[in-house]
């Protein structure tokens, strides 16, 4: 037998281990790497809402985290869509996050080609002024001897984001002004 001292034995086994490490025995990095990143809606605050686009009225859950909408998805508990959404409903997150979102009333004067920012007081006053002016100018009290009390010069267009109660109030206001052209976006 070869006489191997303890020192020699250690040196030999060390060399063997180093060599084995070089030829990658016993390593499988593919299996060790299945960890998934943190779920982005893990800590979000969830608010239900209704899709503003068509008249179907799908339920949407809005996930908010750090004052930002991180995800929007179909509401699984909503009886109409049961978690599903089409492409338009899915894009509803951009109503908040898009850099093209309009945050203030915009006004384009007659004949002008530029938009200018206005505050809400000015805008509402201006709308009221114009409604009054147009209504006074075009109001018809009688047609063929029949009392009609209407104006056909103003139209109102509702949207699918409006609730039943909002629709009721809008129609009530518009009828009281004498409008007959009252429509809804989802019917066009």
């Amino acid at each position: 037998m070869i006489e191997v001292t303890r020192r020699q034995f250690l040196k030999l086994s060390g060399a063997t281990a180093a060599t084995l490490a070089v030829i990658e025995l016993g390593f499988d990095p593919k299996k060790a790497q299945a960890a998934s990143k943190e779920l982005k809606i893990a800590e979000s605050k969830v608010t239900p809402t209704i899709c503003p686009y068509c008249s179907v009225g799908c339920g949407i859950l809005v996930h908010v985290k750090n004052d930002d909408v991180v995800y929007t998805e179909g509401d699984p508990d909503h009886p109409i869509n049961r978690s599903t959404l089409c492409s338009k409903g899915n894009s509803v997150r951009q109503l908040f996050t898009s850099d093209r979102r309009v945050k203030k009333p915009m006004y384009r004067a007659p004949g002008s080609n530029t938009w200018e920012e206005k505050d809400w007081d000015w805008t509402l006053d201006r709308i009221a002024e114009k409604i009054k002016e147009t209504r006074d100018k075009t109001f018809v009290t009688h047609d063929d001897g029949m009392p009609v009390n209407r104006t056909e010069a103003i139209a109102n267009l509702g949207g699918a984001a409006l609730e039943n109660e909002e629709c009721y109030l809008i129609v009530k206001l518009m009828r009281s002004l004498g409008l007959t052209n009252i429509e809804h976006q989802a019917r066009i």
Partner: peptide, 21 residues
């Protein structure tokens, strides 16, 4: 290729160390 590299390295190492020892 990897096996050959390993075999070669092992041979070189073992040869060197046994020689030394």
């Amino acid at each position: 290729g990897k096996a050959l590299l390993g075999v070669t390295t092992m041979a070189v190492f073992t040869g060197f160390i046994t020689n030394k020892l």
